Amino acid sequence: MEQLPLVSIICLCYNHARFLRPALNSVLAQTYPNLEILIVDDCSTDGSVRIIQEYLQAYPQLRFISTKYNRGNTTAFNMGWRGSSGRFILDFATDDVLLPERVAQQVQLFQQLGPSYGVVYSDAEYISDDSAHLYFHSQKHLPALDGDVFAEVLRRYFICPPSMLIRREVFEELGGYDETLAYEDFDFWVRSARKYKYAYLPEVTTQRRVHNRSLSSGWYQKGNLLLASTVVVCRKAATLIKTQEEREALTVRLKYEARHAYLTGNRKEAGQFLEMLQQVAGKQVLYRFIEVLNKYNIDLGFLRELYYRLRHKS
């Protein structure tokens, strides 16, 4: 009988002491039998390493990598996957939780697909700090897509990042995550979807934790490096588009980012998005107006705040 392919779970920890035990327990509870588990700690300061040491003593099959000093998520993950051997790679933040059948379900789907498929992703449940149910990813981000998703990843957010299982060859071809960026998801989607197909598994496989320390919580705060990284990724995407559909999809993305950057006072990034928008789509009357407002520091941020107050009230 052919052995099941090895799956490497890269468990990324940075100050996750509060959530670390349920996260690691969920990895150890996987029903899939052929796993390689690497814990990468990015120089935590909250007692996470002490908890990791407890697990290393109790479960000798676990491997541990320390980044020695805080290097950021993209570099920490690259250290992990480059030290791994699995045919498939799972990027797992240790404030999230894997459901027991997660790996088994996704490997089973991968085995039905050809080598042109690089990523299997799924539905996920969002949970609070205290693990209370919030909502399901599919409730807010349908439709999910299969096959060539390049244009759609330019256009909108529809993939729950921790739900992905990735073929090793994808990372080898891309050279891993771009370590110059503050976050990896959008850049990975753009670069990988240009060549590889994606498959959607309509099952809840993961619990994604939402809390005030999560990476996305301060996305449009002034000076946040996440927005500057989005500028870089959009510039990459502009060099990769091949069709009018892809150009239109990138235009939608640039309009969205330009609006939000302007309305949150991120003047530099707003100007960069607006400049790219003109290069990709030509003159856009409304966005020429926004460009003028941005140039002269005219603040209309209250409109965004009013919109969200009304939306959440309803």
Rank of each mutant, 00 (worst) to 15 (best):
E173M: 11
G176D: 03
Y177I: 03
D178P: 00
D178A: 06
D178R: 12
E179K: 02
L181P: 02
E184L: 12
F188G: 02
F188W: 10
W189R: 14
R194I: 01
K195S: 04
Y196I: 11
K197Y: 15
Y200A: 03
L201F: 09
P202W: 13
H211R: 07
H211T: 13
N212V: 15
R213S: 10
R213C: 06
S216R: 09
S217Q: 15
G218P: 04
W219L: 10
K222H: 14
G223M: 12
N224H: 11
L225V: 11
L226N: 11
L226M: 12
L227K: 02
A228K: 15
V231D: 05
A237T: 02
T239I: 04
I241G: 06
E246R: 05
E246F: 02
E248D: 12
T251G: 05
R253L: 07
R253C: 07
L254S: 00
Y256N: 10
Y256M: 09
A258L: 07
R259E: 08
Y262L: 02
L263V: 03
T264Y: 11
R267I: 13
K268A: 14
A270T: 02
F273Y: 05
L274N: 04
L274A: 03
M276H: 08
Q279F: 04
Q279T: 04
K283C: 01
K283G: 00
V285W: 15
R288Y: 01
